[in-house]
Amino acid sequence: MKIYTQTGDRGKTGLLSGERVAKDNARIQAYGDVDELNAVIGALAASLGTEDDRLREQLEAIQSDLMHAGAWLAATPESASRAQLHPVTDAHCRALEAAIDHLQNQLPELRSFVLPGGHPRAAWAHLARTVCRRAERWVVHLMQQPQSGGPAADDLGTIIAYINRLSDYFFVLARHLNHQAGTGDRLWRP
């Protein structure tokens, strides 16, 4: 199978649901940013040491969740292909909340804004957080488009909640990775 199809050479691409749209369509932007986030998470997971197998497994589960979210974003609300997709549910959000609580319980209290960076692994987590926020903005933008049918018709509300929670997870994970490395948070001094 060839990897290139030449079907996108004129600036259009196919959605999972079969429609062809411009490559700058809000739906393409939203799932493209989710895909970029998934790649950044892969780089973060690759940077972890062998002592972080539990975190790596957690990140791989998040990557799987994002693949499901991307599939929902790549299919229009009225398409039959949506019947085959795995939903992103409140249970996914609760799992992130539990992971956040677990990590945060191991950290010192935060009394200042944090500058991204510190240990390279933490820097990857901060990058994941910012890409996550951009993806969230595009999913919200998509949801507000007339052709999306709004949150109920497009079933994006839970995906937005998941991505919002995920950015919180990456913030706490960055703090955890800095703490674990003995680097500590890089605090903003106004």
Results as ranks from 00 to 15, higher is better:
177 L>K: 09
171 F>N: 03
176 H>E: 05
160 I>N: 00
128 A>P: 03
161 A>P: 03
158 T>I: 14
118 G>K: 06
141 H>E: 14
119 H>D: 15
121 R>L: 08
153 A>Y: 10
161 A>I: 14
155 D>E: 15
169 Y>D: 01
137 R>D: 08
156 L>G: 12
106 Q>I: 01
108 P>I: 06
173 L>Q: 06
163 I>F: 06
133 R>E: 04
147 Q>V: 14
167 S>V: 03
141 H>G: 12
129 R>I: 06
114 V>F: 07
116 P>I: 02
106 Q>D: 09
146 P>R: 04
157 G>E: 04
143 M>H: 06
120 P>H: 00
171 F>D: 03
136 E>Y: 02
104 Q>W: 10
179 H>M: 11
167 S>P: 00
144 Q>V: 06
179 H>A: 14
167 S>G: 11
119 H>V: 02
116 P>Y: 02
174 A>S: 13
165 R>I: 08
107 L>R: 03
168 D>S: 15
167 S>E: 01
167 S>F: 07
108 P>D: 00
146 P>S: 07
161 A>T: 15
133 R>T: 00
116 P>T: 07
154 D>C: 15
169 Y>I: 12
143 M>A: 11
150 G>Q: 11
118 G>D: 11
141 H>C: 11
169 Y>V: 06
167 S>D: 13
168 D>K: 03
106 Q>S: 13
147 Q>R: 14
111 R>H: 15
150 G>R: 05
177 L>Y: 04
113 F>E: 10
168 D>V: 11
114 V>D: 02
151 P>G: 07
118 G>I: 05
166 L>V: 02
168 D>A: 10
159 I>R: 10
142 L>I: 02
169 Y>L: 11
113 F>H: 09
111 R>T: 14
148 S>T: 15
147 Q>I: 10
113 F>V: 08
149 G>W: 09
150 G>V: 12
173 L>A: 04
159 I>N: 04
139 V>A: 10
115 L>R: 02
142 L>H: 05
142 L>D: 01
121 R>W: 06
120 P>G: 05
111 R>A: 00
143 M>P: 05
163 I>R: 00
106 Q>P: 10
157 G>N: 11
158 T>R: 13
114 V>N: 02
174 A>R: 00
153 A>D: 12
153 A>C: 12
124 W>L: 08
153 A>Q: 15
116 P>E: 13
127 L>F: 13
175 R>I: 10
130 T>Q: 10
154 D>T: 08
106 Q>W: 01
165 R>C: 13
145 Q>H: 08
123 A>M: 07
153 A>F: 07
146 P>C: 02
109 E>L: 14
118 G>P: 07
123 A>V: 03
117 G>Q: 08
153 A>T: 05
155 D>M: 14
167 S>K: 10
126 H>Y: 09
117 G>H: 08
133 R>S: 10
148 S>Q: 15
142 L>W: 11
136 E>I: 00
156 L>D: 06
113 F>K: 00
178 N>A: 03
154 D>A: 15
172 V>D: 05
124 W>N: 08
169 Y>F: 15
140 V>T: 05
106 Q>F: 03
148 S>W: 04
169 Y>C: 00
164 N>E: 08
134 R>D: 04
122 A>N: 09
163 I>L: 15
164 N>M: 09
119 H>E: 15
155 D>Y: 12
127 L>A: 09
118 G>A: 00
140 V>H: 03
157 G>K: 01
129 R>C: 02
159 I>L: 04
148 S>Y: 09
153 A>I: 09
112 S>Q: 14
117 G>A: 04
159 I>F: 00
